[in-house]
């Protein structure tokens, strides 16, 4: 896939509203059948798992830090301006010296700007780790959040920064539609939404489509565990002009192969073909987007 947007190789996010639809399975198998060197980004930084399958021999790790305020007790007058500004209770001041709670700080630096006595400085605080490795044709970029840290989005943005511009990328997003998902999607050109034909699957697909459209991103759909459609999933996709790029059958073999840490596209040729076709269709979809922008 060589389609370029924004002057760099295409980036495709694999997302879903509902968890457990098969984002990771689709991401891995698509990357394996991509037909060209590709980057695979693990943006599910609260529980990254792509390397369980890729098993890169060597990972190069770099820390992700966020600037956290530090208060000089001798200069703090306890005026309370910093605590009044902070909506996250990362810094609290109630007529006494300001207290910092690093795990609640979002690193915006606002407290430093409003402090009238120059009592606040900033120090880097590790919130995560980025690991880069190579497995066959796949360049893995994995984000991993530190235990006890709640600032997920900065770690996801750090994953984006480690991606190369000259190679396409598949971004494995976390589930849901909250900040970590939008942080992942903001670096993408196209969103592939994985869902299943259940009431919950359809309900959350609608939320995910609304999220992608709010961000002006085109989307396509993968239906996993496709079987009898009792909820009108295909009708919904048709009515919303969402192309269904792949339907994966409800096949026990997929679960068995995946649970062993293998890729179904490598083990079963018919699935290899399906993911090769998915890669081709995505190329056409992304070209349409690039053409629309040009």
């Amino acid at each position: 896939m060589v389609a370029k947007t924004h002057g760099r190789a295409a980036r495709i996010a694999i997302a879903s509203g509902k968890g457990g639809t098969g984002k990771t399975t689709v991401s891995l198998n698509l990357a394996a059948m991509f037909g060209a060197p590709v980057q695979l980004a693990d943006c599910d930084v609260e529980e990254p798992n792509l390397n369980l399958f890729l098993r890169c021999e060597q990972l190069t790790s770099t820390p992700v830090t966020m600037l956290i305020p530090e208060v000089d007790a001798n200069r703090c007058t306890g005026c309370g301006a910093c605590g009044e500004l902070c909506q996250f209770r990362g810094i609290v001041s109630l007529g006494t010296r300001a207290l910092v709670f690093p795990e609640l700080c979002h690193g915006c630096g606002g407290c430093i700007r409003v402090c009238p006595s120059g009592a606040i400085s900033e120090n880097p605080h590790q919130i995560g780790t980025i690991s880069v490795g190579q497995s066959r044709t796949i360049r893995l970029v994995e984000g991993r959040l530190e235990v006890g840290v709640s600032s997920v989005s900065p770690v996801i943005r750090a994953v984006h920064q480690q991606l190369r511009d000259d190679m396409p990328a598949i971004l494995d997003a976390p589930p849901g539609t909250s900040c970590p998902v939008t942080a992942t999607l903001l670096g993408a050109d196209y969103v592939l939404l994985v869902t299943d034909p259940t009431p919950f699957g359809l309900h959350d697909l609608k939320l995910a489509v609304a999220t992608a459209r709010t961000l002006n991103l085109p989307c396509g759909v993968v239906i996993n565990r496709a079987g009898e459609d009792q909820v009108g999933l295909y009708q919904y996709c048709q009515a919303e002009a969402l192309p269904v790029l792949l339907s994966l059958p409800d096949d026990r073999q997929i679960a068995e192969i995946t649970s062993r840490g293998d890729l179904v596209a490598h083990v079963l040729p018919e699935y290899g073909l399906m993911f090769t076709e998915l890669a081709d269709k995505l190329q056409q979809e992304v070209l349409k987007v690039a053409g629309g922008r040009a």
Binding site: F88, R89, V92, L94, G95, F101, L104
Partner: peptide
Amino acid sequence: AQGAGIQAAEIIVR
């Protein structure tokens, strides 16, 4: 979502 204890402490102080 987070920091309920800190916020409650602020209420008590105020």
